[in-house]
Design a protein around this nucleic acid. Sequence first.
DNA 1: AGCGCATCCATTTTT
DNA 2: TGGATGCGCT
Length: 785
Amino acid sequence: MAEDVAADDPGELGLAKLNEPQARAVAHAEGPLIVFAGAGSGKTRVITYRIANLVATHQVPPYRILAVTFTNKAAGEMRERLEKILGPEVTRELWIGTFHAVCVRLIRRYHEAIGMTPNFSIYDDSDQKAVMKRVLKELDLDDRRFPPAQLLGRIGREKQEARGPEDFSVDNYFDEVTLKCFRAYQRRLEEANAVDFTDLLLLVLRLAESKDETVRSSVEHLTSRFHYVLVDEFQDVNLVQYRLVRALAGARKNICVVGDDDQSIYRWRGADVRNIRNFTHDYPGAELVKLEQNYRSSKNVVGAALGIIRLARERQPKELWTGNPDGDPVRIVHSANERDEAAFVTGGIQQAIADGVSPSEIAVFYRVHAQSRVLEEVMRKANIPYQIVGGTKFFDRSEIKDMLSYLRTVTNPQSDVDLLRVINKPPRKIGKTTIGRLTDLASERGGSLFHCIEALCETDRIGSAAKKSLRSFKKLMDGFIRQAETAGPREVAESIIADSGYAEYLQGRDNAEDDARLDNLQELLGSVEEYEEEARYADETASLSDYLTRVSLLAAADTLEEVPRVPMMTVHAAKGLEFDVVFLTGMEERLFPLRGQQPGEEEELEEERRLAYVAVTRARKQLYIIHTNTRTIYGQMRYNQPARFLDQIPPEHQQRVATPALHDLSRQFTRTGHVSHRDQIRAGVGRDRQDATGRRRSLQPESSRPKVPARPRGERYIERDPDVEYDDGFESLDRFGARVGMKVRHPKFGVGAVQQIAGGGDPVCVVRFDGWGDKRIKLSFLSPA
DNA sequence: AGCGCATCCATTTTT
DNA sequence: TGGATGCGCT
């Protein structure tokens, strides 16, 4: 998955192996630099060599260099390459990591100026939600009227833009409530000595931008410690990160940013493409380098990607090209439904493996996690080893979360969400009532639950049995806390599993599932051990809170293992990765692109387009893009139209293919009077495909269109010429031939009769439903009744 | 306290 | 569709 490493000669920099723009970016010494790096253009190599060059040629001390990557995995790869060039001692001193990981380190260093103790906990989504639920309860608000996720979403967006409660403008009642929750939420985190993901960045940013005299020396130290700052994937940086980079680079302004506006896919997370587009504006005189040669993919893959991205509304002018061989055309596979799609994928994987491709070089992509279930099922049946990258991770399992909560309580007993998770697991006779009394007391006098335990036991609010249970729990945890002062993380974790009663608790409920849970705990111990090993290697003291930090900051791609299994992941998780063979599934309107078809959603569509571009450019040699006629997702069957992006792939780079199941299906539809498409292929019959507006879809004159070589029709699939419309019912199947008077079904309104059909693409129908009257509904929401 | 059942709910992408 | 949640029963 790593890009070509062959040129990383130890001893010398191997600069001769760089192309001209790459060399220019590496050699650039002082001042701002922006590198537009097309997909597969060797940007990691550029960053790596640039760092090596700064250290080796310009004698920059390694601890003066900060390189920010998007995932820990990318950071690790960069480190690995640099070790080969600079050796481990020097490399160790470089600051390389994700924004979040770097900020954790900085918070620990400057914790006094920031006003934190170094053992803080990092709260993930579910922790945040738990906090918000408590906040709502405390404020006596209905969590149905004010869904925690929604509140957190709004608050999160504010924080991404570096705004706090004091900057919050209130326009209506909902805002008022949100502001109240915002304040209470931040206060709760503070009391728990915990931060959320954005806080990690904000705390450092606030210090770096602080004008406060009392912390002046810290601010100066912080903003002058890095002489060179490099940022990868700059197109996905949000406002907080942008300002952070600017602040950390300080007055020197030795900022090198590398990115590709065509690959910006995190707008929803606050990323702002304008950051990359405005860089030259914000840093006048910045050197600009464009890397346009792709070393990764075949000509057909690059051509397909270009066809899609060329239609982007706004982009930096540039043109990706490759000197690589043509390779196979991109196969666009028409399948019947999601099971048929999965069958095609497994068949294709088996073939690729038989052809000698390693399973780890074959990837399956999907737009949303919900698609993975069926794929997994079929992969298991076909006995193909696979790994899900990201998604429901190992660390999301309940027993793992329980154990992590124990560990977090040990390092930071103030963390209430963790305490509540473990206080009665295994059952210790500490029930709802007791916990209710405890939380009541804590809100009355402030302070964390853990610290209120003793105080509660001194009141007469609870019975003696409850007191006993609480005290023995407190004693148990105090024991672990004391142990952690001297013992290593692994030892503490082992004690907890053994002495907390958690293992017996799992053993007691003897079923297969809980046996697996015990195994998972063993695996967790393994990961703690692995961490200790790494710490030893890096010459650092292993600490429990450091381990917990790492675990919380894992990115989806970080869970990709180097094992011979087929990786399956969302397109987002695939960013920055590459594979020989790629299966891109679910390429259908309203799934991929998931959004953007409504007026006013143009930006969403643009992001979907860029996402499609990212997906396509992951493939080195072979790319299969699959779409289905029907798909059952979220319990509902939908009739699909192929994604618009498919028609934007130039015909000379694509080849249309249909699965056998689809073929059978189409025969049923053509029984009455039509000639089957098989016969048509044989006879070479067909007319130019036209879309609803009557325009020819082909982008090229007929004569220049390369003839698709007639490949023998095997059992696996049947090829279809992209520019021939087969009169076999495929088209009418997509829209099931709806016409006025026809009975159709809608998931909500039931069965009704079509009154009118209007518009092209996805036409709007007027349908008369029993009991609902006439409704205007897009055809794609309807199925034949 | 814990289990089983029913109901309701939301469905994008993640550091 | 299934996951999460809540409720009532044991």
